[in-house]
Structures are given as structure tokens and as C-alpha cells.
Amino acid sequence: MKDNHYTSRLILNKVSHSYSGSPVLKNLSVVFNPGEFVALVGPSGCGKTTLLNLLSGYIMPVSRKVVREGIIRTIYQHDGLFPWLIVSENISMGLRPALTLSQRQQQLDELIVLIQLKGFEKHYPHQLSGGMRQRVELARALAGDSDILLMDEPFSSLDYQTRILMRRELVCLLEKRRKTVVFVTHDIEEAVLLADRILVLKDRPAYICLDLLINAPHPRALTDVTMIEAVKRILNELQPPDTGNHLNAAELQQSEFQQQFDVVMQLRV
């Protein structure tokens, strides 16, 4: 593995975007540092996916520009694999075309071992479970030494247990192959468990209301003090200031975390 992520750059410089006149993002400036795992959280419809599409180059911003350098790959929520190709062919899509046949085969084998799907190379996507399919997507995105991974709620279509498993696997994979990751999710707990840095988006047009750095070793547990603190901060930021009703709901959630926290403390004692 070569350390090429220092050559990659991903910068938003006062970027704005709108759909047919209605603004979605306004004056957004972010520098995604190489090798950093950034989670984008926020309520649905706040422009998270639009931001990701801007980063992937699928859409162009209305004003200013996005600096994109390095190989960027996107991992979709589901159905991103080509159903007419078998697992190994899907993964090979990502490999660099310049490789010789034996090099390709070697890298393919490495990736299949990495995602623990040995023996499933000849399967079609519809013959795999949802979790397996997401692992294949991950392998395809990792193939060919990509520098930046954009993940659009990659685990949201999975069941709860598989989701937890996949989070753990993602952390392991990234420890082996460090990449810049931009991870869109509406799941605050997921963001807190995975990310080095969390950007909280809110309102429309969206702006970044919180840029939170989490410096905690992996594996993390939701019951860790830092995690609880981080979730609290994010919820605080997202709670609507005006109506009392919403405030109560958010407060309730906070107090729930506090209770959880207390229980854990008691257990530790």
C-alpha cells in the first residue's frame, strides 16, 4: 500500500447550491483533511446528500467551486452494485486499468479476503444478503487505491445487528487502509462512534452549526463518557429554539442519555 492520501485534497470554498432557485447550501467552507473520517449529520432534507453529490462531482455548485484531487469513490445506500456482474467483476470495476492480469487477480483476492467474502466471488449481488452487498460495495470503492471515500448512509438499509457489525468492520478496514472519508448519516450515534470529526448541518439553506472533533480510540462504545458528551452537544445544537414541544422532546432524549450514563457509572462502581 502506498501512502497517497497526502496528495488528495477535498476543499469546499464558500460553496452555494440551489435547486431551481431555492437555496439548499449557502457559503459552505470546509477543508477535509487527508486521512480524516468526517461525518455529516443533520435532519433529513437539510442538504447532506446534495453536499455529497457536490463532493463526488456528480453535480456542480451554483457558485464558487469544490477542489477535488485524488481518486474519489462513492458508496451508496443500496443497489449501487451492477446486478449483471458477479462479485469479483463488480470489485474489478474499481481496480486500475493499467494493471497486468496477475496483478489484478492478486489485488482482487486481497480485497475479497479483506471483506471476508472468500467463496462468494462467483455470486451475483441478488444472491447475497444486504450486509454482504455493502461489503462488496466497500471493496469496490477501496480497489485501485482510492483516496477519498464518500459514503451516503451506507448502512441505513441494513438491519440493526448487521449495521453494528458493519460499523465495526469499517473501522477495521480503515485501520488497514487509511482514507479520507466523508460519511453522511442521520444517525447521530453512528457518527459519534465512527468519526474523527463531525459536521452538524441545519436549516435550509444549510450551514454548519457545529464542527466537533472527537479524539477517542477505537473501538468506541456509546456508553463511553466522551461519546455521551458528544451526542449531547450535537442534540443541543439541533434542537429547535422556538417551540416548547420540541424542546421537551430533545430534553427528554438528553435526560435519557443521562440516565444511561448513570446506570453505566453504577455498574462500573
Binding site: 463526488s56 462531482g57 456528480y58 469513490r73 462513492t74 451508496y76 443497489d79 451492477f82 470495476m93 474499481g94
Partner: peptide
């Protein structure tokens, strides 16, 4: 054809 396939093709 689901547009996601064309997005993937664009990515690659």
C-alpha cells in the same frame, strides 16, 4: 434504468 447505475459509471 435506475439512475444510480449511471452515477456509478460516472464515479468509475
Amino acid at each position: 434504468i435506475p439512475s444510480i447505475y449511471f452515477r456509478v459509471a460516472h464515479d468509475y
